[in-house]
């Protein structure tokens, strides 16, 4: 009985693998991309429902310029908010669909907001959500008096393994 409680029948534990997150920041003069492969995640599927949590190291994003990465770390207060977290619930049947939306909660810069994570089945999964910097109290960096766009699309590639 005790063992049955600890490991409910049909429950599936999945870990995130081959994961990558890429942000795209747009400024009037340039478009910048930064990549992180420091993603950790877990999904538990039980009774046809899956719940997941993914954590990304805020400090782990690397762009083509080291100075820009340090600026990003300052603005995101990475020591105070070391993780960007995405959590949500989806139906297990969605995982076999070509395309589906997952309502998710994103904790970024210490503020949690709701977003829709758009998932596509390709290599084997890719997803995208568009972060709104000001909603997370992030001071938009500026260059030559012009601020970067408030909308920052974040693209994910990932897989789940048992």
């Amino acid at each position: 009985m005790f063992l049955l409680i600890m490991h409910p029948a049909g429950a599936k534990d999945l870990s995130l693998s081959h994961a990558k997150a890429e942000y795209t920041v747009t400024h009037i003069f340039k478009t910048v991309k930064g990549v992180s492969i420091d993603l950790k995640g877990k999904m538990v599927c039980e009774n046809k429902k899956c719940e997941f949590l993914v954590a990304i190291g805020s400090k782990s994003f690397v762009s083509s310029d080291s100075n820009r990465d340090l600026n990003l770390q300052t603005i995101l207060e990475v020591t105070k908010y070391p993780l960007i977290m995405v959590k949500g619930t989806l139906s297990e049947a969605d995982l076999s669909k070509d395309q589906f939306d997952v309502p998710s909660k994103v904790s970024f810069h210490g503020i949690e907001k709701e977003y829709t994570l758009k998932i596509k089945r390709s290599e084997p999964f890719s997803g995208q959500l568009t972060l709104l910097l000001e909603d997370h109290n992030v001071e938009r960096p500026s260059l030559l008096m012009a601020k970067i766009d408030n909308e920052v699309p974040v693209h994910f590639n990932f897989d789940w393994k048992e």
Binding site: P8, A11, K40, K42, M43, E46, E51, F52, L53, M85
Partner: peptide, 14 residues
């Protein structure tokens, strides 16, 4: 069962 459903950061090995 609640503990099973709510994944926490420690479950990610952090």
């Amino acid at each position: 069962t609640n503990a099973y459903a709510d994944i926490e950061l420690k479950d990610l090995g952090l």
